[in-house]
Every structure is written in structure tokens, then in C-alpha cells.
Design a protein around this nucleic acid. Structure first.
Lengths: 222, 222
DNA sequence: CCGCCACTGTAACTTAGGTTACAAGCCGGA
DNA sequence: TCCGGCTTGTAACCTAAGTTACAGTGGCGG
């Protein structure tokens, strides 16, 4: 049995989705959804794990990664406020197993909706349908972006793009991370990242210190 | 004004989609769709071109490629009988511009449905909805496959995978193409392809001759 | 305050893959 | 039949990126 979302979450839900969903759908989400809070570093979903709910992100950031059989990883994209996992839609019709890993990048709040409702709402709420297809579109674009980067860019360009993206997602020019972290996200080695970062520093584009990269210009290469 | 699909296409439509769509939907497609035939090498759709119709493939194969601003290309996947362009679904809600190039790999027949009907049918026909989401799921999987290959495989493994895939799509162990063609699809250089193919030949996995690669075993490197 | 550990810098080396160059074979058309 | 263009093979070379090794440094816990 369900209890309605508490005020705190209702307000945030409204901030993130109120402008796009019709009131009846918002009511439905409040009635059905379960609120969840995650802390930075939490593993929200792993590869192969069964998908049972759709997350609607109210706050924070979630990092979506791919991993191969050898344990090699690659960052795909971030989910932010107003986003959801577009792959759940199609999973819900077929596999129901996650093909990606989702870890919490910044403390996050979200509302979880059981998969069963997704389909029902498609017919009931036009704004839900629009949101679903818009999410799928956004994710397909992210995939194409990833493919472009991997196929067409050199590592220094991928690094610059990564930093730019990180600034966008966090909204800060101060990137608090280690070279090792970046190496994992880009699927390269720490030494390579240090080398290329040092190059960017020599060009005056960033400033390096321990656990911190300060971006000096969004003009980062290109 | 529309004329109904002629018998020839109706039969093929039934072969490719009859088992999955309800009769009312098949009737609707026959009433609305326009049949088209393309020849090998034809450019069906280019990047930036407006999307107005959804293609339902009855026969043949269509190669989907990505291109960057410098004109560098990369093969994404093939569409075959029973397939459709999943990206059109989401395009239809937003951009309406193609982000990929579609060229005809083998002479193809298809039925084109104006985008306006996609949305309508979603509500009217459960099998259509299932097909749409299953197509999206399949394409997302292809994207993840591409990303995995680019991020985690060496060029020799990507080449082997490419050849395996080509055998699957064409249903023949004889691959009629040039090293240059392969180089474009994998976004590498002809010399590299020749080098690696020669290696595969030395290992007894393929046999090379002019404009022809004969695959000797589907065991092509794992 | 000391010692440890995580993080960073850098050198030296290796390797995959891209580039240039050229020779030779095949094939179709004049 | 001969020419020219497309295709393939291969060598020699270059560059980006991965690897190994090690030194220095900053911060935190004991």
C-alpha cells in the first residue's frame, strides 16, 4: 500500500516536472511514486540488475556508466533534475535488465514509479507520452555523442570535452576529482590523463592542484 | 490522395510484419503506406535531411552511418526485413532532422508511413506500441554495441566483428567488398584493413581475393 | 610531529594504428 | 592488344596513447 509523497518532495517534484506534466498526472505521480534519497557514491543500479521502477530525478546528478566483461568502464552520460532513465522504457517492454551502471555523482533525490504505470500513462496523459519520447530522443543523442567522441576525437579532445561537460553538470568551474577518476570515466590510464591535463595547464586552460581542477576558460579546445 | 498498396507489396508486408501486427493495423498500413523500391547504392536519407515518413523494411538491407563535421564516417548498424528507423519515432516528437545517413546496401523494398500516423497508432494498436518500443530497444542495444566496440576492442577485433556481422546480414560467407569500403565503415585507413585482413588470412580465418573476402569459419576470433 | 598513503609529475619505453610511398595485379574500355 | 584506373600487398616511418617505474608532495591519523 502507498502513502502519498510528503510535502518536501511534492514541492521539488513540482519544480522539476510541474511545468511539463498536466495536473492530473502530477497527482498520479504523487499518489503512486515513492521518494528516495541517495548519497554521493551510492550505487543505484548495476549491470544485469532487474529494473522495477522508473526514477524521476528531482535533484542531484547520476552518472551512467558502461562496463565490459573485463571490468573496463566508460562514462556514458549524466542524469540531472528533470531527467529519467530512458532505457527503462524499452527495458520495460523486453529485457527488464539494466545494461548500464548508475552511480550517484551528487546527493540526489528522486521519485520512483513502478514500471507498470509507464505503459498505462502513455495512453492517459499526452504530456507523459511527450516526455517519454523526448527522453528517448535525448538519450539517443547522448549515445551518438559518445560514439562521435570515441570514433572521431583524440584523447586530448575527449578530455577537454569531459571537463566542459563536468562544468555544465555541476555548474562550477572547480572540478573536485582525481586524475584516476577521470581515467576511469574516459577508459584510459591515469598517466595519460596527468600528461594531457598538464598540457592543458601549460596552454593556460586549466589550473591543477591536488583533487582539484580549476577550469579557466570554457573555450577548452575548439 | 492514396491508392492502396499493390498485391506484390501486400504479400511482402504480410511476410515481414503480419505475424506481429493485428489485422486492423495491417489494413491501416495498406491503406496509408506508400511502397518504395531502392537500388543498391541509393542514398535514402542524409544527415540534416527532414524526416517525413517512417520506413518499414520489407526486403533488402540499409546501412546506417554516422558522419562528423570533417566528413569522417562510421558504420552504426544495418536495417533488415521487419526493421524500421527507431530514431524517427523520437525525431517525430522533436528535431525532425536525421542525425544519420542511410544508404541502400542491398536492393530494398519498403513501405513508407507519414509520421503523423505513428502517434495515432500508438493509442489505437497495442501491437504497434509494442513494436515501437521493441525497435527503440533494439537500436539502443546497437548503440551500446557500437560504443563497446569503439571503447573496448582493438582494431583487429573490430574487423573480425564487422566481418561476422556482414555474414549475418547478407547470409553469405562471401563478402563482396573492397578493403577501402571496410576502412570507411570502421573509420580507419585502407592500409590498416589490408594489414589486419592479411593477418586473419594467415590464421586461416578468411581467404582473400580481389573484391571478395571468403569467411572460412564463423569462429572469427572469439 | 611522524609516518603512511593517496595523489601527481615525469621519464623511458612499448605498441597499435595511421601515413606515405610504391610495386604489382586485375580488369574494362578504347 | 594496350592503357589506365582500381585494388591489393608491403615496407618504412611517425604519432598517439598505453605501460612501467619511481620520485616528490600534501594531508590525515595516530
Amino acid at each position: 500500500m502507498h502513502t502519498m509523497l510528503e510535502q518536501h518532495y511534492q514541492r521539488k517534484l513540482d519544480d522539476a516536472f510541474g511545468f511539463m506534466f498536466e495536473p492530473e498526472l502530477m497527482q498520479e505521480i504523487i499518489r503512486i511514486g515513492q521518494a528516495r534519497t541517495f548519497r554521493e557514491g551510492d550505487l543505484m543500479m548495476d549491470i544485469g540488475q532487474a529494473i522495477t521502477h522508473l526514477p524521476l530525478l528531482l535533484e542531484g546528478a547520476v552518472k551512467i556508466m558502461r562496463e565490459d566483461s573485463q571490468g573496463d568502464e566508460l562514462l556514458l552520460y549524466y542524469l540531472e533534475r528533470g531527467d529519467t532513465c530512458a532505457m527503462s522504457f524499452s527495458c520495460c517492454m523486453s529485457t527488464k535488465k539494466s545494461r548500464v551502471r548508475a552511480t550517484v555523482e551528487e546527493d540526489s533525490e528522486m521519485v520512483l514509479v513502478p514500471l507498470a504505470y509507464l505503459d498505462k500513462w502513455l495512453g492517459d496523459f499526452p504530456t507523459w507520452k511527450a516526455y517519454v519520447f523526448q527522453s528517448i530522443d535525448a538519450r539517443m543523442n547522448e549515445f551518438l555523442e559518445s560514439i562521435d567522441s570515441l570514433a572521431f576525437l583524440r584523447m586530448d579532445e575527449r578530455l577537454a570535452k569531459y571537463l566542459r561537460n563536468k562544468v555544465m553538470v555541476t555548474g562550477s568551474m572547480e572540478i573536485r576529482t582525481t586524475h584516476q577518476e577521470i581515467a576511469i570515466d574516459l577508459h584510459t590510464s591515469r598517466v595519460v590523463v596527468s600528461r594531457l591535463l598538464k598540457q592543458l595547464e601549460k596552454e593556460g586552460l586549466v589550473q591543477l592542484s591536488r583533487n582539484l581542477i580549476t577550469v579557466r576558460t570554457m573555450d577548452l579546445a575548439r
